[in-house]
């Protein structure tokens, strides 16, 4: 009786993992650790960082600007994710049920391929109060000019709308890919039984898409928290601080005021919040085993 032990591959596995681990340690681990260290120091890039304990954090918790930034970011996420997901779901369903044209799918992706800064500049001109095309249109139908970027109530919905425009196609494509996994015979059966499109969408598409939808939702939610470039190009956090999102707040503290320690503390805080969201995401994914059995 030969008793060959199963070969132990662990040593080889670590060897293969090594390059990635080194990259991870150098480019993520070390900077992250440094970031955490700076968050407990007084550091402005020009001095030597001195340890100040939790001072940055206590200051952060009392900083109205910081809480305003968190609130503004949350408002953006709600606006952006809400509109983006609904639109993407609609478009994906249309693509799935009506046409499967490759040209159409490619076209949908176009805005996503344009760099964010270009998108920001493009919309800044289109939506400008005085020279913008959109306000000219509004004017011809007799509506007054809207300060899309300068009116405090409009600024954030405008930014959210721009990013929705940019990312809907991409999100729709992800959802569409999820829909393709739903077996065609279900739809055929349902239509023989006399179900309409709306009923099929609610009874077949939505439930079976749930795992994909959950993934897409939470991934885009985290991405949405990191809104920066559109704001840096268009509103610069204004008017007053109506669009001063958390990333812009961190940017100002770090690279305008050179409060590196303080900015690092805000970044760590944000990382914690994103961590919580990640945990929720993990849970959602586990909980949503596919209903396709």
């Amino acid at each position: 009786m030969s008793s060959t032990k199963p070969r132990d591959d662990r040593r080889a596995a670590w060897l293969f993992l090594l390059p990635v681990l080194v990259g991870f340690a150098v480019f993520y681990g070390y900077p992250a650790a440094r970031g955490v260290w700076y968050s407990v120091t007084d550091y402005n890039m020009l001095n030597t960082a001195t340890y100040v304990g939790a001072e940055n954090y206590t200051k952060l918790l009392q900083d109205d600007q910081f809480w305003n930034a968190m609130l503004v970011t949350a408002w953006y996420v709600v606006l952006n994710i809400g509109s983006q997901t609904l639109l993407a779901l609609g478009i994906a369903t249309l693509m799935h049920r009506l046409t499967r044209s490759v040209v159409l799918r490619a076209t949908l992706l176009l805005p996503w391929l344009v760099p964010n800064v270009t998108i920001g500049l493009l919309w800044m001109w289109l939506l400008d109060t005085n020279l913008g095309f959109v306000n000219q249109l509004l004017h011809t139908v007799g509506l007054g000019p809207v300060g899309f970027f300068t009116d405090e109530t409009w600024a954030m919905p405008t930014v959210a709308g721009i990013n929705t425009w940019a990312y809907t196609g991409y999100t729709a494509l992800l959802l569409y890919a999820g829909m393709l996994q739903i077996p065609q015979y279900l739809y055929e059966g349902a239509s023989i039984d006399g179900a309409g499109e709306w009923r099929m969408f609610r009874r077949i598409t939505l439930p079976l898409l749930r795992p994909v939808l959950a993934l897409v939702l939470v991934v885009s939610l985290i991405g949405s928290f990191q809104i920066f470039d559109t704001i840096a190009v268009t509103t610069k956090g204004g008017p007053v601080s109506a669009t001063q999102v958390i990333y812009y707040f961190i940017y100002l503290q770090a690279f305008k005021y050179f409060h590196m320690g303080y900015a690092a503390a805000a970044a760590v805080f944000l990382a914690l919040i994103l961590g919580v969201l990640t945990a929720i995401q993990m849970r959602l994914l586990r909980a949503s085993r596919s209903d396709l059995a």
């Binding site: 480019f27 993520y28 681990g29 070390y30 900077p31 992250a32 440094r34 970031g35 955490v36 700076y38 550091y43 890039m45 991934v219 985290i222 990191q226 770090a254 690279f255 590196m260 900015a263 690092a264 970044a267 760590v268 944000l270 990382a271 994103l274 961590g275 990640t278 995401q281």
Partner: peptide, 21 residues
Amino acid sequence: MIRTSRVGAALLTLAVAAGVA
């Protein structure tokens, strides 16, 4: 993983600015 890398990236900005390289 995407999530971890994003968290890392948030901190990376700061560290790069600190003049690592």
